[in-house]
């Protein structure tokens, strides 16, 4: 029989951080509890204490301030999916959260949770990386902000210190005329985790050349994969089939794909090639509405 768990339910971020600082790795933060319960029941983790942050006020905001969409850590996936604020400012964020698992998981799982868990097969991380989102965290030494691209470190590993909590995610609202999409490719059933998920962001100059192109590939490797050098090659060039194929091939070459029950490494590489191309095509289509 496992040791009895201790349950802490602090009512401020400062209290939660203080408990984490004292207990170290023996304590786990819990919000919606979907990931934690799974990991606990599968005996992948055996914490001595749970620090539930559900009673901390102020972490459920959804707002656009200073050109940024701000999502509090305790906002549920379903709330992101349905939020008019999100749908009007950065619809691809609502779309990606709406594609996670099933409605039950989306009702419970939170924005902070999907970040802190750093599960390679979650949908939102790739979108946040492509959109240059920033993760706000708070620990014993105060607050700091970490770019999403530096936040995910490895399988179930983030840049968080053991006494730090995700308090929110800020996403810069892309300039008008930007197309942004998230393609979730599943190999088993509609509500499965992705085999490959690709977020694409495209903005075009009036002459059809590329002003901005960003691509992040999720679920194919340990962390969302983005290659800035490859993106930079496209800037200023006409976005034609050759250029798109060049970017897709470069991503296929560079992503160190993994094997799991949703696809082999070889298959994933080919799917990266296909879905990066499709993501750029559909982001470009969304960026240049019919005249």
């Amino acid at each position: 029989m496992p040791e009895p768990l201790r349950l802490f339910q602090p009512t401020s971020i400062e209290e939660a951080v203080a408990v984490l600082a004292e207990l170290g790795d023996d304590a786990k933060v819990v919000a919606g509890a979907t990931a934690l319960t799974l990991l606990y029941r599968q005996r992948l983790i055996a914490p001595g204490a749970l620090v539930s942050i559900g009673r901390i006020p102020g972490l459920k905001t959804i707002e656009v301030v200073d050109g940024e969409l701000r999502l509090g850590a305790l906002v549920s996936h379903r709330e992101v999916e349905l939020s008019p604020v999100v749908r009007e400012s950065i619809p691809v964020v609502a779309d990606a959260f709406g594609k996670v698992a099933n409605v039950r998981v989306r009702n419970a799982a939170t924005v902070g949770g999907v970040m802190a868990e750093s599960d390679y097969a979650s949908d939102p991380p790739a979108v946040f990386v492509a959109l240059d989102a920033v993760v706000d965290v708070q620990g014993s030494n105060g607050k700091r902000s970490i770019p999403a691209s530096a936040f995910f470190v490895a399988f179930y590993e983030t840049a968080l210190e053991h006494d730090e909590i995700v308090i929110g995610v800020r996403v810069p609202v892309p300039p008008a005329g930007t197309g942004a999409v998230y393609h979730k490719f599943v190999t088993r059933s509609s509500e499965d985790r992705p085999c490959v998920g690709v977020a694409g962001v495209v903005r075009l100059h009036a002459d059809g050349t590329v002003a901005d192109l960003r691509v992040a590939v999720g679920a194919a490797a340990e962390t969302p994969q983005r290659f800035w050098d490859t993106e930079a090659l496209a800037i200023g060039k006409p976005l034609d089939a050759d250029l798109i194929a060049q970017v897709a091939d470069a991503y296929a070459d560079q992503v160190d794909t993994l094997d799991d029950m949703r696809g082999s490494a070889w298959y994933r590489t080919e799917m990266v090639r296909v879905w990066v191309r499709r993501a750029i095509e559909s982001a470009a289509a969304a960026a240049a509405p019919a005249r």
Partner: peptide, 8 residues
Amino acid sequence: TVAGVTAR
């Protein structure tokens, strides 16, 4: 009690 927060 840990760091001023009392466990259930």
